[in-house]
């Protein structure tokens, strides 16, 4: 039973794709709660949000946005490559994405250290509470995505993926784009409060 459980579901791509979309729907509602909290508090305390957001480093935030967008591009290229059976190109794409993810986390680390040094903590006020929780949860998702990519690279080295079988690469890509999109919203909400 256990050995053939994987094989007896031939034609996995449809189910895998449906599964990852359902999972992303769950993720969207997970973050949805936080976006709701953000909306409620921003409406309640517009001045607080404006004043506090000035303390964030826009340049670092913008760099991270560029980095994540680049990583989405390299991920998309990796998927396109493996669909045509180009393993080497796929590995380069995934490795680039992994590298971008690491840069993102490095910059995030710098930002947070700067914040802590200036006495800005989650408990400081509601703005920073939201900032740390939302970027923190997002950061966890980045780490999770990177872990999966390391696994993709290992499996890729073993020659598991090909033009016929590349489901894990594709669904990891979908997940990574989702994580990206979350950041696309987080960036203006925290760094560019009007």
């Amino acid at each position: 039973m256990s050995a053939d459980a994987g094989n007896k579901h031939a034609g996995a791509p449809v189910s895998a794709r449906l599964g990852i979309w359902a999972f992303l729907a769950t993720e969207l509602l997970l973050f949805g709660g936080l976006f709701t909290a953000y909306t409620v508090f921003r409406i309640s305390y517009p001045d607080l949000f404006h004043l506090q957001h000035l303390k964030l480093n826009r340049i670092l935030g913008a760099s991270n946005t560029v980095i994540l967008l680049t990583s989405s591009l390299s991920m998309a290229l990796a998927i396109a490559a493996i669909r045509q059976g180009q393993r080497k190109l796929m590995e380069i794409g995934v490795a680039t994405t992994l590298f971008c993810g690491a840069c993102f986390l490095g910059i995030k680390y710098l930002e947070w250290s700067e914040d802590f040094a200036r006495g800005l903590f989650p408990r400081s006020n509601l703005f920073f509470g939201l900032y740390f929780v939302m970027t923190g949860l997002h950061g966890l998702h980045v780490i999770l995505g990177m872990a999966v990519m390391v696994w993709l690279l290992i499996k890729g080295r073993q020659g598991v993926f090909s033009g016929d079988y590349n489901t894990p690469v594709e669904i990891t890509g979908l997940y990574w784009h989702f994580v990206d999109i979350i950041w696309i919203y987080l960036f203006p909400l925290f760094y560019l409060v009007g």
């Binding site: 997970l30 973050f31 949805g32 709660g33 936080l34 909290a37 508090f41 903590f121 989650p122 408990r123 509601l126 509470g129 939201l130 740390f132 929780v133 949860l137």
Partner: peptide
């Protein structure tokens, strides 16, 4: 899920949502 995360964060990190 996020509600439990926030509740825990309130207690551990001292946020006040």
């Amino acid at each position: 899920g996020i509600t439990f995360i926030l509740l825990a964060a309130e207690r551990v990190l001292g946020i006040g949502f």
